[in-house]
Nucleic acid binder design. Structure first.
Lengths: 187, 187
DNA sequence: GGCAGTTGTAAGCAGCTGCTTACAACGCTA
DNA sequence: TAGCGTTGTAAGCAGCTGCTTACAACTGCC
């Protein structure tokens, strides 16, 4: 990914390149359809190094998802997290962060980073839950999060029109309005 | 799946058993993580027959998704399609239909039954679009559909609490209320 | 009963996957 | 410069995958 012409042998740079390549490919194709050979090639690195530095494909995946979601959560306060996450999903190149995409692509049968996915999801939901004072705040936050993920699925995985090609602003407006109903409505 | 003790050799029953087994496994694990050997075993059938009757794993998948979504659409009128689809996703054993689950599980990189998935999604969206008279009816319908899929993802793939364990009635109530806002609100 | 087409079976092939190993090239320290 | 741990490489292994093939067993028809 990012080459460091200054040094020829640089373990840190290699690790970073693998993380970057993994982040890109996992977000694009999901866990199953991304091969360690693809990751290594994109990183410009021998694939054996992936196992030296991360131990396994799953371990690399976990580090990818951890880094990416942590970055995103740190960068956005709760009240802006919804629109920020939504926008990062709507604008492919805009935000380099792919936490939610990677998260949902990782689906599969479950074992792959399941614990970690749980933590990430819980952290998103906890932040969103602060936006409402309804008694079932967390459930409503989960539903809001689920919507973001669903939109990501439809846009980037199935590519269905008109959603896939719609103006991000229009989507954000529609979704945030409805989510406001979801969060504010008592009972 | 369903055994027919009366006949020993029955091509139709074998085909049906493969379709049933495929429907179950594809919905549970997605396309990639379901092997033809698993399908054949669950169907109680030699795996070579899968290729005799369907040609390829992808072709079987397409027939599975076509059958399942068609059944669902035929059975529910537009005004009840939303709640029916939502409920069928919320109650694992309730509705034997898994159209949306299979649909979203099929994600992967895209080639697998892409055309067919597009048709299915379009048909759902067209029916949902009849529920609003907003100018961007189809976009709103897509967003509603996306929400259903997102809820399915969170509940059945990531299993996140409290959503995964929440009362279906509570979810239906919250979601339908918000979706009403989404569909009715004129700009 | 004899035949032909249909249905079912066992075995295996080629390709890809994650992962390992044995080894070479490098660069820091003494 | 000699030695040694670190970084990078090439090759390959074992297991699984979708799919094919060669063949056996059954069924319906004459």
């Amino acid at each position: 990914m990012t080459e460091q012409p200054g040094r020829k042998r640089d373990a840190a740079a290699t690790r970073q390149a693998l993380l970057d390549a993994g982040a890109k490919l996992f977000a694009e194709r999901g866990f199953d359809r991304t091969t360690v050979r693809d990751i290594a090639e994109l990183a410009g690195v021998n694939q054996a190094l992936l196992f030296r530095y991360f131990g396994s494909k799953e371990a690399l995946f976990e580090q990818v998802i951890a880094r990416s979601s942590r970055e995103h959560l740190d960068r956005h306060p709760p009240e802006r997290l919804l629109s920020a996450s939504l926008r990062s999903m709507l604008e492919p190149g805009g935000d380099r962060n792919r936490a939610l995409e990677t998260y949902l692509r990782s689906s599969g049968s479950g074992d792959v980073g399941a614990v970690l996915r749980e933590e990430v999801g819980a952290e998103y939901a906890r932040m969103l839950a602060t936006l409402t004072d309804a008694p079932d705040a967390e459930l409503r936050a989960d539903l809001a999060l689920a919507w973001l993920m669903g939109i990501g699925v439809v846009r980037e995985i199935t590519g269905k029109q008109p959603l896939a090609g719609a103006d991000p602003d229009a989507i954000v407006s529609l979704v945030l309005t409805a989510i406001r109903t979801l969060l504010e409505r008592a009972e």
